[in-house]
Design a protein around this nucleic acid. Sequence first.
DNA 1: GGCTACTTGCAATACGGTTGCAGTTGCTTG
DNA 2: CAAGCAACTGCAACCGTATTGCAAGTAGCC
Lengths: 139, 139
Amino acid sequence: MAKNLDELRAVVRANGLRATPSRLAVLELVRASDAPVSHGDVADRLASQGWDRATIYRNLTDLAEVGLLRRTDVGDHVWRFEAVNAEHDAAHPHFVCTECGTVECMPQIELAIHRVKAPRAVKQRQVEVHVRGLCDACI
Amino acid sequence: MAKNLDELRAVVRANGLRATPSRLAVLELVRASDAPVSHGDVADRLASQGWDRATIYRNLTDLAEVGLLRRTDVGDHVWRFEAVNAEHDAAHPHFVCTECGTVECMPQIELAIHRVKAPRAVKQRQVEVHVRGLCDACI
DNA sequence: GGCTACTTGCAATACGGTTGCAGTTGCTTG
DNA sequence: CAAGCAACTGCAACCGTATTGCAAGTAGCC
């Protein structure tokens, strides 16, 4: 467990952030969750440790900004966060399950543009693509 | 124009709602928009006609409930509404500019799936597709 | 160890979304 | 056409998620 904290500390610092106790707690919790967690979830679960909601919020957004977490939403207009692991590369579409919140990478998906009238970024594929629906487990 | 109001009136009544002036104004505005419009947008644009925001909200949700409008979101946590009509029936991707927030319908875009391994919903195109990038004005 | 930039707690605000209640009105029916 | 009633509207308020300013506290660099 102490080793795990050192690892968290190292990774936070490697990403240019200070390894504060609250940040480590947030990162540990999100990494331990198997589904995306909301700010509210995290704040509730860390309330026993005395962290203020504003702090939790800032930590979540800071960690997301440096790429340790990913902010996502499942269509209910609540932002959720999940851990980003090493092999991740953002250059392909993502599928989000609107039921369980699972995010899957979809490199096998591509945009097909049937007519020329589209923004340049779209034509150049310089866009983020999010696909939202029910995964096979929830369908 | 009067004919157009009669048509709106008829369609609203045909869907079991009362054809009140505010409802007709809302439906007309949303039908005239070429991109999904938010509650706030509609309220602002109809403010000169004196309609209260609560009324606009209720009208939007009522019209969506009976199927004359479709509620949709483009990933920015603001609900938007678009008209449902014969040619606009199918759900289609929306492009949102990450800089200025402009939203565009993208019926000319379609998912191309290169390999069979994808969630069933994706293969059946039972998904919402959100495309995010810079529009031509912000690029 | 000192110092500085970053972080946190507190308190408040912002914003989209929603609702209760009393008065108004669309529309059905006689 | 008029009456009646359920649907609709304006007003005022509330809700939950998201976000921010400021002063005090602290991580970490030198």
